[in-house]
Write a protein that binds this DNA or RNA. Structure first.
Lengths: 348, 348
DNA sequence: CTGTTAGCGCATTCAC
DNA sequence: GTGAATGCGCTAACAG
């Protein structure tokens, strides 16, 4: 066992007093090397744990077998699920992932994208920072990726202004489906709590909400949509913005906010679902174990991740770089639990 | 705007009809290049978003400014917290992270370690797969890393058989502290539910548990330690292994299991904390919002992550490779909530 | 069968 | 001021 730290072909070559390329061929089991020498070199390489330097190979092959994943917040369970799906699929197809978290900062997103442009990865999967992603100097960073021919897949929070493959949740249908369930269980005075007011996603859900109301001949009341900013104190705002007496169902756009809303309601003496029913978005661990357990829209994060990674790797490995970008729409499911009334139940 | 996909020094050089090294110097603002040419080249580079190829630089500098993070399960909130801490610190110090998940598979861990040996990263942070990590052929993979002089930091689940920097939770004190709290609130018939039976961590916690009992003159009853394997159906096993009538406090070694135990107890008509008090490990989102909210040992995952990353990067950047490996012990805190009795309260 | 050459993209040393 | 040469570690085409 040679105690050299990094064993290179050159070192092996000098040890056997042959050329580097001979060693390379021997190790790659080329038929042009004599059996004897080959065996000796291979044995030596194995004993000393020779491993070809990936960086050198990357430079040579002009690829890294690595994909960059950019998410707004790694502490959000939905994104972790997506990450899990990406990791699984990437591993299956022989790729590693380098994870970057923007913490909802547009500057950090730009910085990360800039880094990812530099040849460190073969492709990028991203869920954009919420908010003014529309800023054109920000779009610039995405354009740069595309201009450099680095495949890009956007998921969940996408932007129309960039042409690339996308994997999105059917948020319209999700909003519609949730609302239909409220109506089917006898709730008619519906409100919405939207903790992602800057994201277009919220608006799409609201459109689905509207459509369901319309189909039942109910009118949409804009005053019953409560936007909560990241800095806002919901405990203060919610009772001010919403008269709990006049509401019998609340749709909430993320999991943690859902649970907080329920806490506030219960502390004000409302009982769930008797007084007010609740449906939330993102089916994570919380909603299962909270009391009452919460009826949820599941966005199938893991599936989104797998699908995104699959598409990206297809694109990376495709020889033909055509511009037939696809948008894959993942359907949501409604997971019914205790925070909504039973279907047969109807209020009088 | 040239529509070339990857802009290289060579391309710029031929555009200006100068040599590659001139361009390199110009872009790096070397004083040896004439002001005029420098400005022209820099302007061109900027306009066309020239970025030096990271892979080439990595090869040149023999580093990657990337660290590998290996965790057993990315869906576990504790590990996500650690990951978050690592990511923050790494970013702060100019490093990227490549995340690998072993899914508690020892084979996958070996495969990942093997990959990480190949020069893809400057250092590795790992929390070992639970269980028979003692297998010597498995240890081999760690030895390889060390032999290749790749800095290694282990956190949480460490193994004595490898000499490297470590960041661990003071699990003894955590077990002790939790038990003391039970005793101080009048609980004397304590049980343990251990969902990580293969990990030495569990045993260390149990030692702390024993010591606290001993100090109060109570005897440790081995029969009240219930091990739950990953395949086990706890709903079946728990009532079989534990007589709820004879227990007034249960210590559970992870968050999700804590919540499940509470569910089972409540479904059997036990009330928490009146009949049985609960303390769990890992202070995540769940324990805050469950009813009743759970008293938890917080392991400060984020801090563990930051500390690990910091140590690793120090090691990477240290010129002197001395063998003064350190083990940093992170103290836990007890976050008291509703699942335990108030301190002043004593059962008669 | 084995070795030489060239090049992936870049920065650096040394000539001119 | 500018450029040629060298090398990071590796493979592949081409010679011998």
């Amino acid at each position: 066992m040679v105690s050299m730290n990094k064993l290179t072909l050159k070192a092996i070559a000098s040890h056997f007093k042959v050329s580097v390329s001979t060693v390379s061929k021997a190790i790659n089991d080329s038929h042009e090397i004599s059996e004897d020498l080959k065996v000796r070199i291979q044995k030596f390489a194995k004993q000393n744990h020779y491993k070809p330097n990936r960086v050198a190979l990357n430079l040579l092959n002009r690829n890294t077998k690595t994909i960059g994943v950019v998410i707004p917040n790694i502490l959000n369970y939905f994104f972790v699920q997506v990450l899990y799906g990406i990791e699984q699929m990437a591993d299956k197809r022989g790729y590693s992932i380098i994870t970057c978290s923007t913490n909802e900062s547009i500057e950090k997103e730009a910085k990360i994208l800039d880094f990812l442009c530099s040849g460190a990865v073969d492709g990028v999967i991203i869920s954009t920072v919420a908010g003014e992603t529309q800023l054109s100097d920000h779009m610039e960073h995405f354009r740069e990726l595309l201009q450099k021919q680095i495949p890009l897949v956007m998921f969940d929070r996408v932007t129309e202004r960039i042409e690339c493959d996308k994997v999105v949740v059917d948020d319209f249908e999700a909003g519609y489906k949730a609302t239909k369930h409220f109506l089917a269980t006898g709730c008619k005075n519906l409100a919405i709590v939207n903790p992602i007011p800057n994201s277009p996603i919220g608006n799409v859900r609201i459109e689905g909400f509207k459509k369901a109301l319309q189909e039942s001949g109910l009118v949409f009341d804009k005053g019953k949509v409560v936007s909560i900013g990241p800095e806002d104190d919901m405990e203060l705002i919610l009772p001010l913005s919403l008269d709990f007496e006049k509401v019998d169902g609340i749709l909430v756009f993320d999991e943690i906010t859902t649970v907080k809303v329920m806490d506030i309601l219960q502390s004000k003496g409302c009982s769930i679902p008797t007084d007010i029913s609740i449906i939330g978005f993102t089916n994570g661990e919380l909603s299962k174990y909270v009391t009452p357990s919460v009826t949820m829209i599941s966005q199938h994060g893991r599936h989104i991740g797998e699908s995104s990674a699959n598409k990206l790797i297809d694109r990376i490995e495709a020889k033909d770089r055509v511009d037939d970008f696809q948008t894959k729409i993942i359907k949501t499911s409604l997971v019914v639990r205790e925070s909504t009334l039973p279907l047969e139940h109807h209020k009088c």
